[in-house]
């Protein structure tokens, strides 16, 4: 009886682990979509509305979920903090996303690079900056989609499969 309970627990734990890994892939895909939307909105605010950065970031991040901290957090820090530059604040917020495994290292580097020049040049230069990031985001979106499609089911299967294998070994 104890063996069967143990086996059940192993299966549940490994299944859950598989689900978490699969969920991570789906979350990165959703975050990539959100980032694309937020950057698009921020671009509109900056290039066409000429809205100063803090309110532009607030508006771009208002309907976000996973990447909300990047936009709203930067805007709040800009409003409160009189010392750090936009680049530094943006970098700190990007690192939060990296630590939360919401984006990968490659995207994190692209975002940090974008933040260093965000707001500190004229509209023409800002437009180039946005074009560059949007190109990278499109590629990242595609990459996360492929990874999710390819690996989501695999991780779920691996979770359950690994659990079964372990049970067989132990029994």
């Amino acid at each position: 009886m104890v063996k069967w309970i143990g086996a059940g627990l192993i299966l549940a734990a490994s299944g859950f682990w598989g689900l978490v890994k699969a969920e991570g892939l789906a979350r990165r895909r959703a975050a990539a979509g959100e980032l694309m939307y937020g950057v698009d909105k921020l671009e509109t605010e900056i290039l066409y509305g000429k809205t100063p950065l803090p309110p532009a970031l607030f508006r771009a991040g208002s309907s976000m979920n996973l990447c909300r901290a990047l936009f709203i957090g930067t805007a709040e820090a800009l409003e409160k903090n009189g010392r750090d530059s936009v680049g530094e604040i943006w970098k700190n917020q990007t690192q939060e996303l990296l630590m939360g495994d919401i984006i990968d290292q490659e995207m994190g580097s692209a975002l940090i690079c974008f933040g260093e020049s965000l707001g500190n040049s004229d509209c023409q230069s800002q437009q180039k900056l946005f074009s560059l990031l949007k190109g990278q985001l499109r590629a990242y979106e595609e990459k996360t989609r492929i990874l999710r499609d390819k690996n989501e089911k695999m991780w779920k299967f691996i979770g359950v499969g690994a659990g079964c294998a372990l049970i067989l070994l132990l029994l």
């Binding site: 000429k50 100063p52 707001g119 040049s121 004229d122």
Partner: peptide, 12 residues
């Protein structure tokens, strides 16, 4: 920097 709050484009 502080007067433009990181928004040079808005003050062209």
């Amino acid at each position: 920097d502080l007067s433009m709050r990181g928004s040079l484009y808005a003050f062209e």
